[in-house]
């Protein structure tokens, strides 16, 4: 699914979190929103996911206006920085949640849900942890379960907020490759937020550098490295 963002702005009271920004995201791309805290990257991601609503501007999904769609209608697979797993449910129940939450007509049978959950557990390479509770998992395992849970609803896009932010350096490297593989397998348009320029440059097809609610530059990692648009981009992406 390709996404267009047209003159999108967001104010919290008198605070401008997002100046009018525009951006076109091609279908199937893996995009990084890169910037320091307060740059508006998470706000932009949350608007795409339907968790915040813009003060002005439009969002188009595959060419049709999605600005007024509710969060439930958007079918965006959203992964939070701290995963927000349901503590009182097993891994299996966590992943099955989105399917079971559907209206009866659209809900798959329990057998079908079981098949899909097991396929996702295989995809994240944790086939045997379905019966465990989140408190019994490591940080990296939690992140992958959160990813599988987001994929279970057959999302139209994948949105990840600092997906590696709460992990130590070694696990972070491993999971980066994991996300790349899952993106390549599913072909989903994937947008992730990060403040780590190395992570953005290594993983993304296209990097969107943001600062103070504005988009400073959009480009392939190599382009941004070679030709930074301004001093901010230069200093922020300097390795």
């Amino acid at each position: 699914m390709h996404i267009e963002i047209e003159e999108l702005a967001k104010e919290f009271g008198t605070e401008r979190a997002l100046h009018p920004v525009s951006l076109a995201i091609p279908s199937g791309a893996l995009i990084a929103l890169l910037g320091p805290s307060g740059s508006g990257k998470t706000t932009l991601l949350r608007i795409l996911g339907g968790l915040e609503f813009p003060t002005s501007g439009r969002v188009l999904f595959d060419g049709s206006d999605a600005t007024g769609l509710t969060v439930q209608e958007r079918r965006a697979g959203f992964v939070f920085q701290h995963y927000a797993l349901f503590k009182h449910m097993t891994v299996f129940e966590n992943i099955a949640y989105g399917l079971r939450a559907r209206k009866r007509r659209e809900r798959p049978t329990e057998a079908e849900i079981g098949r899909r959950v097991n396929r996702l557990l295989d995809l994240i390479q944790l086939p045997d942890i379905g019966a465990r509770y989140p408190s019994q998992l490591s940080g990296g395992q939690r992140q992958r379960v959160a990813l599988a849970r987001a994929l279970a609803i057959e999302p139209r896009m994948l949105l990840l907020d600092e997906p590696f932010g709460a992990l130590d350096a070694k696990v972070r490297k491993e999971l980066r490759q994991g996300l790349r593989d899952i993106h390549d397998t599913t072909g989903l348009t994937t947008i992730f937020v990060t403040h780590d320029q190395e992570e953005a440059m290594e993983l993304a097809d296209l990097v969107v550098v943001m600062s103070m609610g504005r988009i400073e530059q959009v480009g392939k990692p190599a382009e941004i490295r070679a030709r930074p648009a301004n001093d901010f981009v230069r200093s922020f992406t300097a390795a």
């Binding site: 609503f53 813009p54 003060t55 002005s56 439009r58 206006d65 600005t67 007024g68 509710t70």
Partner: peptide
């Protein structure tokens, strides 16, 4: 359009 945004 802007009405919808307001309601949501």
């Amino acid at each position: 359009m802007s009405d919808i945004t307001f309601i949501r």
